[in-house]
Design a binder for these strands. Structure first.
Lengths: 192, 192
DNA sequence: CCATCTTTTCTAGCGTTGCTAGATTTTCTA
DNA sequence: TAGAAAATCTAGCAACGCTAGAAAAGATGG
């Protein structure tokens, strides 16, 4: 029968290749944009033919979705750190700044998470914890301090996301960004 | 020499065909999504061969950009109407509701305006008035009533845009939308 | 009215994309 | 070491945006 050693090695190799695909996709996207992340290019990067990619992912979108999932995991971690490091008075500011920094420093990652029209399992029965975790950090800010913390957190997220998107797509100039952060924090700190 | 009548007729015909292209693009997008709006499909719709499209627009993106421009014009008109019809106390709510209604009722149009990565001449020297007009309506809400009306208007826009995008892409459930509008209006009505 | 020049339109095709069927090679098992 | 099983590759399809050069249609001057 099949030796476990061999099966294990195969699994390890497959895992390594999968992660190589995702790393390459991310690097190319951040350097040249998502349209440059083609299946052919990725197969070149990992030195395998195209069909091999399809034994890892159903299609190109699934690759992008996997990268996006990594992004949500990382954003969640960032936000949690920011929250834990915050003093009672400045939590809103810390999280807002952290969110904006994430989007600013990895625009391609932010794009794949929110703007490429990928359908991720948000708001379904078995929504992965990575997808919930980020929002939980925002929710934590308003829990107990507001009449409807859920809605306030959703609006906080919306405001941050809108600001990021309008800036990234040049609908808003990058100039007054610090001022915008200040007023945004004020808006959600008064809160009711 | 060329009769002016003939030249005029040609211009009219060209104009008519251009508008036919845009109307078709819009209809197909709203019915089947933007990926279905291909150059081949559009050339079918207007009963001309593909190259004719390229005598009207430089490339596919230019077609989409032209549709987007129409969208900004229409949104600007909607917002202006909402503002003019509003009573002193409910202007913020009227505009917010109007904005959300526009996005909700023409999701493909909203998508091409904001989410398809088209570069429109925002924030340059000769930014078309259509592109400014919408934002002007938002700015009008806060002018004179806030320390920094420009920034508050930008944040109001960001919040609305973020809410639209997160809803459209299913990051937020559609359910509590009315409640969200209520709190959003509250946030920007207290304003400072 | 016809011949010529200009403009408009079409045919046909290039290069690139995502994706896949079927052949081929490699690896494992007995 | 032969044969089965798994992994991988070659080669190609259909659809895309876009364009060069041929063909057709329209306008102009004699």
């Amino acid at each position: 029968m099949t030796s476990d050693r061999i099966a294990d090695r195969k699994i390890r190799e497959k895992q390594a290749r999968r992660s190589q695909i995702l790393t390459s996709a991310r690097r190319i996207a951040e350097a040249e944009g998502w349209p440059s992340v083609t299946v052919r290019r990725l197969s070149d990067e990992i030195s395998y033919s195209q069909p091999v990619l399809y034994s890892h992912f159903e299609n190109r979108d699934a690759i992008l979705a996997a990268v996006a999932l990594e992004g949500f995991r990382e954003l969640g971690v960032d936000l949690e750190k920011a929250r834990l490091r915050s003093a009672p008075g400045n939590a809103v500011e810390r999280l807002a700044a952290s969110y904006l920094r994430f989007a600013e420093s990895s625009p391609a990652m932010y794009e794949v998470m929110f703007s490429l029209g990928l359908s991720l399992p948000f708001g379904v029965a078995d929504t992965p914890s990575e997808l919930r975790h980020g929002f939980s950090q925002l929710l934590e800010l308003f829990n107990g301090r507001n009449a409807d913390p859920e809605v306030v957190a959703e609006l906080f997220w919306s405001n941050l996301h809108g600001l990021v998107e309008l800036t990234r797509t040049k609908r808003l100039p990058r100039s007054r960004q610090k001022e915008r952060l200040r007023i945004l924090v004020e808006l959600f700190t008064v809160s009711r």
